[in-house]
Structure formats: structure tokens, C-alpha cells
Design a protein around this nucleic acid. Structure first.
Length: 877
RNA sequence: GCGAAAGUGGCGAAACUGGUAGACGCGCAAGCCUUAGGAGCUUGUGGGGCAACCCGUGAGAGUUCGAGUCUCUCCUUUCGCACCA
């Protein structure tokens, strides 16, 4: 055995052994209960970052641990390979996105492999493979048939200079990111998935996901946003009905039907038909409506805008009082929610109040607090009262509580056919059309005679040409006749192929199903998906808490309803790992842009008393500004390249650092010293095994069976107890609690105990042999390479990756005497040693006999004595 | 604004069920060793005090024999959502 721990050699040989044995190939017919362990697949951006390393290490620890528990484990890996960055890189380098993407995949696969992940690479897939995305297209067509997918106009960000659609992240301060031109909103036809039909099912099923973090479930529930209310009609009081050509009423949705008698105006969104109709005869209004359409479609931007509006000149009648009310266009009303129109109650709604104040609209108070603290009758008009309460000035509903009034008013409206109770969701249908090149083509053909014709299944996949280079102006597919020119499948005439591609969230909504049967060319999924699904453990970043996870749940449910998979929910357990943080340093030169410096080049000193920080750039000795901790990112130059880390110390050190420094859900602070510490521990582990092995060289190996070790005593017995305690603790920490830092700490303690243990007689050697085996076994999911080597050095014939976890020997855990704490008035005053099963009376007597206790009793009997068996005795004096 | 989570040594953290606060590691200090290394080993390390002891988990109150843990009020930080009618 080498005296020195050489990570490069150790890791190479371990990986070769795994590869030669095809050690992590997952087989449906293998024994053991299945365990599907999945980390979110990466976007092939070019290189792995530390967030990936953390994500995949967590998954690998669980996958390897479960293997050792006898489970039949599947851990696959793939590539979320479509998307905008490839197009940007293509523009910058003049290389087709396909080539850029595939080169990145090849490089990053090498990086992943050097981390030693126990992955079944035979199942690898990339979403840009036609054999993958053909099934996107296929299911899209099935959804179209079922009416789950449909076409309607939607609003997009339009760059008038580049003549192209922009993603939200390409709009900066309302301007196009490349041209700086003011972005416009544009209505274009798009395809949608009817996820709102599933809103209630998706929301209700959140309660059946106990393995998901509470906060993710809350975020999803809020996103779906269920609210119960009343939809009601305000009949038009003028000729608007003929103008619109509809049944003659303005429909609104409200959750506060109890405030109906406080309505003083009705407000509609700029895109509302009433607004558009009114604008036709009113140039000023038309200009305002037009202005509202400009600007970003981002809701967060909309939210910060000042409230503005204009009267339409149109009027409606109050459904119950018949009073005439003006209709306003208001920029705070969203076309996409409810009916795109609201009944405005300035007295009881802050937004309506603000608007009414600005435009001098009347305020009518109709609810007061039940306690009388807020007197609705005498309340000044400058105040609003948003809480529920008791109704005033509301005809026959006066005196009812808000809750009762909602029901009574809804009934009254329903009787007249003017309204009914309804549930409204915040969630909107999922628009999947993207006017982009590098994505999955939407399989539709537009024919002048036959309309929008689905591509027949036999013609799938609609292949994306891979040789195009986008130039930033519009979608290259729309400029490639060989792609868009086609024949109509129905009439055979000349037709035009849809050039929009699908949102990349579609690609990632079902990849976990395809891993189960990635080689099946004849079907999207097969029975193997039912074997592996649900994913037993899904691991990924919190940034996917809403969209990806919700879309994946929706897609799985659609496939479930079509009878393609048995489970409606894809992920049984979810672990959201924390971010990887590092320090951020910058300088702002007088003339130029802020310049960021890598923390590796900066010395940081923080005064422990004043908290003042002093950061100095090493190269020039001058100060830089310290911004604090933040997520590792290219733009702030505070990333650490995983390659440098693995080249210097090896993958095991990187993995150990990640697992030891913080629990998986918490953010993790980068620390060079911490990495060094992890490496030091592995060297100590190596040395401990080395010294043990060398000292015993040439001797027969002592038996470490429980029977052989039953007669040991003293230090031997103590070490054996610690070893078996560690075994139990690590199993619990990894298997149940999902905390790895305390598992590592426990093994560190075990190794410290091994260091204190001496003796070369057979019994001592056997105990130490067993303790080292347990240490190596416990660490093996976390640092698989070095433990693979040490396991062999400890004389094991079965390779570690084939070995099973050991159960702690109950006999080893038994202690002759245990320490019990003695408190006086809850303060620690002493300790006594007693047999584990000692009765309360004995504990009480022993505690009272303690010198430290008698001192406080001063000859008096204690007021009270509390005995917690096996833990403590508290004497109250 | 709404919602959620979190505040513990010089630092990362531990304390899972109300029961010894600070395990484990980093850093630091002293000493030892040496093939002088990004090495290794030993010891110490919450604050105060010679000591007995006292004080200590963001602040303040409460429940309890006993509170980092439970309750209330407040402060701070982080994250998410954000004109959702």
C-alpha cells in the first residue's frame, strides 16, 4: 500500500473498475425494491459550475447509499439541450447552435464522469435529439386532439428594430437588449396548453406530496392561486351592447360581493373589448389604450406603475340598484385575470381608492367593523376599510356579516340571472410557442385551403435543421424555405410549415419518464416507466420550485389521463439544494464600468469587533470594495472552476467539502480553508488505514465477526461501541434525515477514536480493523474513489460498490455505566455514573448524595426531584 | 404590501422528542517533529474571574423543575410572490 494518498491515481483506478464492471447499469429485472434517484439535468452551457457539483453530489450520495441498502437504483443523466444561450453563442461565434451544444455536452460529460457519479450512462439523452423531441411533437398532437392544446392570440414582446420577438429576460428597462429600442406588445397567434383545466387537480394533489418541502408546496399553491368569488353582470346602460354585438352586459369577477352596494364605477383593462370599442370613436382614448399596450409584459413592472385611467364615456347599470355607473379604462386592471374588468369599490379596496382619489370618483362606504371600531356611517371619505365586517346602506342585506352577505347577494344575483358563485385561478394557460430557432418544431402545417393541419404521426419527427446560424433578426426557420415549404397533408397543395418552436420547459416536462425507456424507438414510454416511476428522490435548485415542477406535474397528469403512465404525480420526494456562495469584490473606476475581482485574488480581513471589512487586491496591494456574499456567477467574477478543484485535490475532496460544510438545503459558503480541511481529513483516513495495514503485514487477518469480538473489554470495547454507534448514526442521517454534514462529523469522531486506540494484540487489531472498515463503508457514498481503494487495502475481496451496508450490532452498543447529569434548579452541578437500567430511586439517591448537590441543600430536604431516566436528575431546592 | 424561512463562538455549523449549548471542522495560540510541506503530531480555544462561581443562542416578556427548542410582541436578514379584483 502506498503511504501517500494520491487522489489522481486512486480516482482513475476506481473509475476504471466501475466502468469495466458496468457497475451502475440499472436493470428492471434486478432484485431489490426499485429506487429512482434523479438530479435535475443540466443545460449544456459549456462547463459545470459549483451548483452542478453540489446538486449531483447530493444525488450520487443518495443513489450510492440506497444501492448499499439493497435497493435497485436508477440514476440517469441527460441534457436540457434546447434554448436561447445556444443561439446567443451562435451569433457571437458564427457556429450553429447544434454544434456548440454537442461540443458542450461532450466536455461536460467528461466533467461529470470525473466526479465519479454512479450514473447509468446507457440511458443518456439530449432533448435536441430527434428521437427525443419527436415525442414532444407526438404528445402535442394528442393534446390537440383532446383539446388540451389549442391556438389563440397571445401577447409577446416585440423589438421593432430587429423585427423579432423577445423573451422577458431580453427586455431591459422596457427596451430590447440588443437594439435598445422601445419594446412593444404584439398580439400573435400562439399554441397553448390548457393547464388551467388541471388547476384544481394540481392544487389539491399538493396535499398528497408529504415528501416535498412545505415552502415549495406553498409557492405552487400561491402560483395556482385559487380564489372563491362571484361573477356578475353589469348590464349596459347605453348602446355599447350593439357596438359589441354581444348579449349586452359587462361581466366582472369579485371576491367581495358583500361590497356590491359600494360600487361607484367599473374599470376595464386596456385590451378589454369595451375599451377597444369605445376607443374607436375617441382619439384620446385610443391613444391611451395604445400607450397601455406598450412596455414590458412583465407583471412585476406593471405592478410598480402609477395608476392611470380614462373614462370610456360608456355606462352600465348596477345589477341590484339599477343606478348608472361610469366605465373607465384603468391600467391596474389585468386582461389576463378574471374577466379583465372589475367592479370598483373605493371605500373597501386600496387600489380602487387610490384611483378614485386621483380622478375624483365618489366613495361609498357599505361595510363597517362588527365591533363598531370603524363606524361605516360616519367614516370619512379619506379612509378605506378592507376587512370584512357588517354591512350598512345595502338594502335588505344591511346588518349581515360580510360572509353571510356574500352568500345572500350571490343568491339574489343568481335569481335574476345576473351572477353566480365561481372559483377563479391565478394560473393561466401555458403558452408554448416561441419564435425561436433552437427548439422543438411545433408539428403543424398551415394550408390556405385546409387551415392548420397537424403533421401526421408517420411524418414525425419534424426535424429541426441543424446547420442554421441565427443573426438576431427574427427566426432563421422562417427564412429557410427548405424547412417551411411543404405540402398540405390533407389536400396535397402547397403549404407552409409552422416555424415556431416549443418552450424549452416542454422538453424538461417529461425527460424523467423517458430515462426509463430511452431506447424505445416505437413509443414515447413503455411499461418500464411504470416500474421506475415515481421518481423516489428528485434533487434540484429552488429556482425551479414553480414553473418546471408545475409543468412536469401537469404533463405527467396529462399522460396519466391518457393511460400512458400509472402515476399522476412524477416526484415522490423533492430536495431543493441551497446555492453555492462566494465573496464579491469590485472597483468602480472613475470613467468606466464596475470591475469585479475573483475572491482568489483578494485578501479579506474582517474585524471581529467592529465588523469592518478590509479587502485588498493582492496584485497591486490597493483596496477593493467588499460587497458581501452572493451566488457564484460569471457576471460577478466570483465563481470557482470545479476543474481546478478536482485537479488540485481530486473529486473526493470536492465532494466531501460540499457535503460537510452545510446541510443540503442550506446555502453553502465557499471556503478555500474548508476545502483544505476536507482534503486533510482524507489524508488522515488514508494514513490511519496505511498504519494499520502496514503494522499487520504478513499476519493472518483477525476475525471481525460479532462472535469473535464478544469478549473484548476496556478501550477495545469502547472503540467498538463508537464504531457501531457511528454506523447507526450515519444510516439515520443519510437515509432518514438527509443531512450529510453530521454523518461526516460522526465518521470524523470515529477516526479520532481510532487514533486514540492503541495495541497490536489480535483483539485490538480486530477491533481496529472493524472500526476502519465501518469508517470506509460509512464514507463510501460521499467519497467513493478513496474508499474504493481503502476497502481493498483492508483486505476485502468483494469490491465496495458491490457491498451492502452493515447493521449496527446491538451488543456492541451496550454500556456498563452511563453518565447522568445532575442539576440543581436546572443548572448543571455534577455528573454521576450509573448502570443503564438503574431505577429512578437509585438515580435520586445517587444525585442527593453528590457533594455538589448537598452544598445547595444545606441540610434541608429538596422541594422536588425530577428524574429523567438515563439522562438527568434535577433537584429543586 | 402579502407569504415563507432563518438569526447560536473569530468563521462554517451541531444540539432530531423541552433535558449537559457550541459536537465536527476551519481559524487562531503554544509546544514538538521533520525528507521545510498547501506537511505531520500534541495541547488549548464562547465571554468574565486567581478561584468558588457568574454570564451567555437577535431584543423583551411569558409558560415550565428545566427553553436555542413552546407562546406573545418587536428587530434584522434572506427568499418567494407582487395592482389577482
Amino acid at each position: 500500500m502506498d503511504e501517500r494518498y494520491d487522489p489522481a491515481a486512486v480516482e482513475r483506478s476506481a473509475r476504471e473498475a466501475w466502468q469495466a464492471a458496468n457497475a451502475f447499469a440499472a436493470d428492471e429485472s434486478a432484485p431489490g425494491e426499485k429506487y429512482y434517484c434523479l438530479s435535475m439535468f443540466p443545460y449544456p452551457s459549456g462547463r459545470l459550475h459549483m451548483g452542478h457539483v453540489r446538486n449531483y453530489t447530493i444525488g450520487d450520495v443518495l443513489a450510492r447509499f440506497m444501492r448499499m441498502q439493497g435497493r435497485n437504483v436508477l440514476q440517469p443523466m441527460g441534457w436540457d439541450a434546447f434554448g436561447l444561450p445556444a443561439e446567443n453563442a451562435a451569433m457571437a461565434n458564427g457556429v450553429p447552435p447544434a454544434r456548440w451544444t454537442r461540443e458542450n455536452i461532450a466536455y461536460m460529460k467528461g466533467q461529470l464522469q470525473s466526479l465519479g457519479l454512479a450514473i447509468d450512462w446507457r440511458r443518456e439523452l439530449a432533448t435536441c435529439d430527434p428521437q427525443y423531441y419527436r415525442w414532444n411533437q407526438w404528445l402535442f398532437l394528442r393534446m390537440l386532439e383532446k383539446g388540451i392544446a389549442y391556438k389563440k392570440t397571445g401577447t409577446v414582446n416585440w423589438d421593432p428594430v430587429d423585427q423579432t420577438v423577445l423573451a422577458n429576460e431580453q427586455v431591459i428597462d422596457g427596451r430590447g437588449w440588443r437594439t435598445g429600442a422601445l419594446v412593444e406588445k404584439r398580439e400573435i397567434p400562439m399554441y397553448y396548453f390548457g393547464i388551467t383545466k388541471y388547476a384544481d387537480a394540481l392544487r389539491a394533489a399538493l396535499d398528497d406530496l408529504p415528501g416535498w418541502p412545505e415552502r415549495v408546496r406553498t409557492m405552487q399553491a400561491n402560483w395556482i392561486g385559487r380564489s372563491e368569488g362571484v361573477e356578475l353582470d353589469f348590464p349596459f346602460a347605453d348602446d355599447t351592447r350593439t357596438l359589441l354585438g354581444n348579449d349586452g352586459a359587462l361581466r366582472v369577477f369579485t371576491t367581495r360581493a358583500d361590497t356590491l352596494f359600494g360600487v361607484t364605477y367599473v374599470a376595464v383593462a386596456a385590451e378589454h373589448p369595451v375599451a377597444l370599442a369605445a376607443a374607436r370613436g375617441d382619439a384620446q382614448l385610443a391613444a391611451f389604450v395604445d400607450e397601455c399596450k406598450r412596455g414590458s409584459t412583465m407583471e412585476a413592472d406593471v405592478a410598480t406603475q402609477e395608476k392611470r385611467g380614462m373614462p370610456t364615456g360608456r355606462h352600465v347599470r348596477h345589477p341590484l340598484t339599477g343606478l348608472q355607473l361610469p366605465v373607465w379604462v384603468a391600467n391596474y386592471v389585468l386582461m389576463g385575470y378574471g374577466e379583465g374588468a372589475v367592479m370598483a369599490v373605493p371605500a373597501h379596496d386600496e387600489r380602487d381608492f387610490e384611483f378614485a382619489q386621483k380622478y375624483s370618483l365618489p366613495v361609498r362606504t357599505v361595510v363597517g367593523s362588527a365591533s363598531g371600531a370603524y363606524d361605516a356611517v360616519t367614516a370619512p371619505w379619506q379612509e378605506i376599510y378592507e376587512h370584512p365586517g357588517v354591512l350598512v346602506d345595502s338594502q335588505q342585506f344591511t346588518g349581515l356579516t360580510s360572509a353571510a352577505a356574500v352568500d345572500a347577494i350571490a343568491t339574489a344575483l343568481a335569481d335574476q340571472g345576473l351572477g353566480k358563485k365561481r372559483v377563479q385561478y391565478r394560473l393561466r394557460d401555458w403558452g408554448i410557442s416561441r419564435q425561436r430557432y433552437w427548439g422543438c418544431p411545433i408539428p403543424i402545417i398551415h394550408c390556405a385551403r385546409c387551415g392548420d393541419v397537424p403533421v401526421p404521426d408517420k411524418d414525425l419527427p419534424v426535424r429541426l435543421p441543424e446547420n442554421l446560424v441565427p443573426d438576431g433578426s427574427g427566426n432563421p426557420l422562417a427564412k429557410t424555405p427548405s424547412f417551411y415549404q411543404c405540402k398540405c397533408p390533407t389536400c396535397g397543395g402547397d403549404a407552409r410549415r409552422e416555424t415556431d418552436t416549443m418552450d424549452t420547459f416542454v422538453d424538461s416536462s417529461w425527460y424523467f419518464l423517458r430515462f426509463a425507456c430511452a431506447d424505445n424507438e416505437g413509443a414515447m414510454v413503455d411499461e418500464r416507466a411504470n416500474y421506475w416511476l415515481q421518481v423516489d428522490q428528485y434533487i434540484g435548485g429552488i429556482e425551479h420550485a414553480i414553473l418546471h415542477l408545475l409543468y412536469a406535474r401537469f404533463w405527467t397528469r396529462v399522460m396519466h389521463d391518457m393511460g400512458m403512465v400509472k402515476t399522476p404525480e412524477p416526484f415522490a420526494n423533492l430536495l431543493t439544494q441551497g446555492m453555492v456562495l462566494n465573496h464579491i469584490f469590485h472597483r468602480t473606476p472613475a470613467n468606466g464600468r464596475r470591475q469585479y475581482f475573483n475572491p482568489a485574488d483578494v485578501d479579506l480581513v474582517i474585524d471581529p469587533v467592529t465588523r469592518a471589512s478590509q479587502a485588498t487586491l493582492r496584485s497591486d496591494g490597493s483596496p477593493v470594495t467588499y460587497e458581501g456574499l452572493g451566488t457564484m456567477s460569471k457576471s460577478r467574477n466570483n465563481g470557482v472552476d470545479p476543474n481546478l478543484l478536482t485537479e488540485k485535490y481530486g473529486a473526493d475532496t470536492a465532494r466531501l467539502f460540499m457535503m460537510f460544510t452545510a446541510p443540503p438545503e442550506q446555502s453553502l459558503e465557499w471556503s478555500d480553508d474548508g476545502v483544505l480541511g476536507a482534503n486533510r481529513f482524507l489524508r488522515r483516513l488514508w494514513k490511519a488505514v496505511y498504519e494499520h495495514v502496514v503494522a499487520g503485514a504478513g499476519q493472518a487477518q483477525e476475525s471481525t465477526s460479532a462472535a469473535a469480538l464478544s469478549g473484548i473489554s476496556g478501550g477495545d470495547r469502547e472503540l467498538r461501541r463508537i464504531a457501531h454507534q457511528t454506523l447507526a448514526k450515519v444510516e439515520d442521517d443519510i437515509g432518514r434525515r438527509r443531512v450529510f454534514n453530521t454523518a461526516v462529523a460522526a465518521v470524523m469522531e470515529l477516526l479520532n477514536a481510532v487514533g486514540r486506540h492503541t495495541g497490536q494484540e489480535p483483539a485490538a487489531r480486530a477491533v481496529r480493523q472493524e472500526a476502519l472498515e465501518i469508517a470506509v463503508l460509512c464514507l463510501s457514498p460521499i467519497v467513493p474513489h478513496v474508499t474504493h481503494a481503502l476497502w481493498q487495502e483492508l483486505g476485502q475481496t468483494q469490491p465496495l460498490w458491490r457491498s451492502l451496508w452493515r447493521k449496527a450490532d446491538p451488543a456492541a452498543l451496550v454500556q456498563d455505566l452511563i453518565e447522568v447529569v445532575v442539576q440543581v434548579n436546572g443548572k448543571l452541578r455534577g455528573r454521576i455514573s450509573v448502570p443503564p437500567g438503574a431505577p429512578d430511586e437509585e438515580l435520586r439517591a445517587a444525585a442527593l448524595a453528590e457533594e455538589s448537590v448537598r452544598k445547595y441543600l444545606e441540610g434541608q430536604p429538596p422541594r422536588k426531584v425530577i428524574v429523567v431516566r438515563g439522562k438527568l436528575v434535577n433537584v429543586v431546592v
